[in-house]
Design a protein around this nucleic acid. Structure first.
Length: 273
DNA sequence: ATTATATCCTGATCGC
DNA sequence: TGCGATCAGGATATAA
């Protein structure tokens, strides 16, 4: 199973890149896939990387101003399905398939590899401009009250709602199922019909599942020099996703797979009401 | 205005 | 063994 980058995976990528890239000077950027050139690609020569962090589901790379470029610059990399940001120390000229862009740095190279080419580059001049529209579920502003406001008047089912990036930013197909299971809420429930007790459980589950995933993602993506970079223990954390017909670890019921919004949803009908 | 659906893309897997 | 069909899903454009 491929670890599709949702919030915890993107957080992990950003945390691992930060110490390696912060302070590095950029010699050049070569974009090899024209799809990554939406509008103008700003000049990078002479800029340094100030830092790398997560912004919603995107990796935000912050560049300093430079003598010839007076403004700060921000690049938001959206990994979508198969995008990988790989840091290669020194000059290790490796043959990499699906290479879409490469940053030559004063020490090492940053590669953007993306088999399915869904990934995107977006350039911004300030971090407010780069900020996502939805609420970050791990920020302090995401309170139970805020959740109440966000679901107000929405008539979608709980699964579809959780994946709306204009409400909460960062959840995808896998964690949406996991969170609903943790909250004991059926994915079929209309989101605005949840009781206050259920909404409270949902809020808790969103934060708990994401935090726990972040704690464990170090083992999911452990090695940025390996283009595969993915190993096993991720799967053992999943309570329902990909576990159709298996037993629910909480109640012993049988996990079911249904299709919502053309996407698989996994849940336990016995304990998710 | 809000919600549902088709589309992008390519490697892996499935069925015959 | 081979080959076409199907599946996977984040976000967006388009349709309802």
């Amino acid at each position: 199973m491929l670890p599709v980058p949702e919030l915890p995976e993107v957080e992990t990528v950003a945390r691992q890149l930060q110490p390696r890239l912060a302070g590095r000077k950029v010699h050049s950027l070569r974009i090899l896939d024209a799809r990554l050139r939406n509008g103008r690609t700003p000049a990078l020569r002479g800029r340094k990387i100030r830092g790398v962090r997560r912004s919603g589901k995107r990796v935000l790379i912050e560049f300093t101003a430079a003598p010839r470029h007076r403004d700060d610059l921000y690049l938001a990399v959206h990994l979508r399905m198969t995008g990988r940001l790989l840091w290669v120390p020194e000059h290790a000229p490796r043959r990499t398939s699906h290479l879409r862009a490469r940053f030559e740095l004063d020490r090492g190279t940053l590669l953007f590899v993306d088999t399915r080419r869904f990934g995107t580059f977006e350039w911004f001049r300030s971090d407010t401009e780069a900020a996502p529209t939805g609420v970050d579920p791990l920020e302090s502003g995401f309170t139970p009250r805020r959740l109440d406001e966000l679901v107000l008047g929405v008539r979608q089912n709980a699964k579809a709602w959780l994946m709306r990036q204009d409400k909460l930013v960062g959840l995808g197909n896998i964690y949406a199922s996991e969170i609903l299971h943790a909250a004991r809420v059926s994915p079929l429930r209309e989101i605005a019909s949840l009781t206050s007790v259920e909404r409270r459980a949902l809020h808790r589950s969103i934060r708990r599942i994401l935090s726990r995933a972040i704690e464990n993602c170090g083992t999911t993506f452990s090695d940025f020099q390996d283009a595969r970079g993915v190993s096993g223990s991720y799967q053992s954390l999943l309570a329902v996703y990909g576990r159709e017909r298996l037993r629910c670890g909480r109640c012993g019921g049988t996990i079911r797979r249904i299709v919502q919004q053309q996407r698989s949803t996994f849940f336990c009908p016995a304990c998710q009401r």
